[in-house]
């Protein structure tokens, strides 16, 4: 429905529904912390911005669909790759029977620890360097966004507070003796 509906706003709303369902799946496998985080971050923040942009841009999607079919080979290729991957995941017990134990081994039982405690323990001990690197990448992205958008135009006057505070009567005003009948 995300790609099939005609109205772009409806597409975004269906995408939100999709995220919501993903959160529901997380709850079903017992990862309620991840589910809530998905809702807070993606549905609550990212998709709102998406919706903003889509609502305000007023894109004519029917026009964009004109040359749609020329991308069919690439799309089909990606689809086939995804299908193969899915099949490999599903048929994992057949191809490599030992793999099943690998996936579920490091997870502590749900009864013993809470979600957040388990995630925190892994994140801050085993994967601490990756965690730090992820933080650094985010920092770089943030600085990059600021650098890209911050530009000082020459014609714009900005407020300089220290300059304003440092003004004195001697520099700010000029006392002129005006003779009557003449003006300046």
């Amino acid at each position: 429905m995300v790609i099939a509906s005609r109205n772009p706003v409806h597409s975004v709303l269906f995408l939100i529904l999709c995220f919501f369902n993903a959160a529901g799946l997380f709850v079903l496998i017992g990862a309620e912390y991840l589910a809530m985080l998905l809702v807070v971050v993606y549905v609550g923040a990212v998709m709102v911005l998406f919706l903003f942009v889509v609502m305000m841009l007023d894109v004519d999607f029917a026009e964009m669909r004109q040359g749609f079919l020329q991308y069919l080979p690439i799309g089909a290729l990606i689809g086939v790759i995804l299908l193969v991957e899915l099949l490999m995941v599903v048929s994992g017990w057949y191809i490599a029977p030992g793999m099943l134990g690998e996936g579920s081994a490091p997870t502590p039982p749900v009864e013993q620890t809470q979600n957040i405690a388990a995630i925190g323990e892994l994140l801050y001990t085993r994967y601490i360097y990756w965690f730090q690197v992820a933080g650094l990448v985010l920092l770089v992205a943030m600085i990059g966004a600021i650098v890209l958008t911050l530009r000082h135009k020459p014609g714009v006057r900005r407020q300089n507070i220290s300059e304003q505070v440092a003004r004195r009567p001697e520099t700010a005003i000029e006392v002129v003796k005006v003779e009557s009948g003449k003006g300046l």
Binding site: V40, V43, G44, Q114, I116
Partner: peptide, 18 residues
């Protein structure tokens, strides 16, 4: 009485914007 109660409230109230 769920474990992520406060996060649930936070998530739901962030959906209110829709």
């Amino acid at each position: 009485d769920i474990n992520v109660g406060i996060l649930y409230v936070f998530a739901i109230s962030s959906l209110g914007v829709y």
